[in-house]
Amino acid sequence: MLGSGLIQGLAVTAKNFVKSFHDPARLVTVEYPEQKTKLPENYRNFPFLVYDGDQAIDGLRCVACKICEAECPPQCIYIIPDRDEKGRPTKKPKVFDLDISVCMSCQICVEVCPFDAIKMDQHFEIATAERFNALLLHREDLAKSDAYFHTLHPTEAAQVDAVLAEAKRRTEAKARPAAPAAVPATPTAPAAPAAKPPEPPPPAV
């Protein structure tokens, strides 16, 4: 009959209207500033640098190898390795800048990092009126503790810890017979199942 489809439609909307008062599946709104959805463990939004221990800058796992700078698709990472007084590299970043006004949270820096030094953050409430200072994160802003990493991604952190412990055990085993050489650990990105030896840092692009 003409109009039966219209009436069916009206019935559906009426049903939804009534149900919105008592059925949580029909009132799906999360009232954002007061309520927050629980972010899934895998959620990623901008990278941060992991540090061990208490010292934010000294404890950074980052060795300024510049792999992430080279691999970053939008080229939003900028690293200058630190040098001591004699001009030798100290395997620490002097400058580690990350421009989150460009970053697309693709997680490729995390995947390529052989040292598990850069991980993905979950903080997204960063709207700001200031483009230049607020959206360029320096290593001081980026450094977050290992414990923070554990709270964000417990599963991934556990894997990373296991890999790091294994690497440490191996370096120690190696260091005992041989002279203590600065052999970098052989960890792996958690996503890649195969452990790969770290490649030498490619020349700056």
């Binding site: 901008f46 709207a127 483009r131 959206l135």
Partner: peptide, 29 residues
């Protein structure tokens, strides 16, 4: 390379794309 070259921007919301919550956060700002 940025719309603020031509028109004044009041709030910047970084992210690619920002979550809808981030937009709401920007609106509150």
């Amino acid at each position: 390379k940025g719309i603020d070259r031509f028109i004044p921007v009041d709030v910047y919301i970084p992210g690619c794309p920002p979550r809808p919550e981030a937009l709401l956060n920007g609106l509150i700002e």
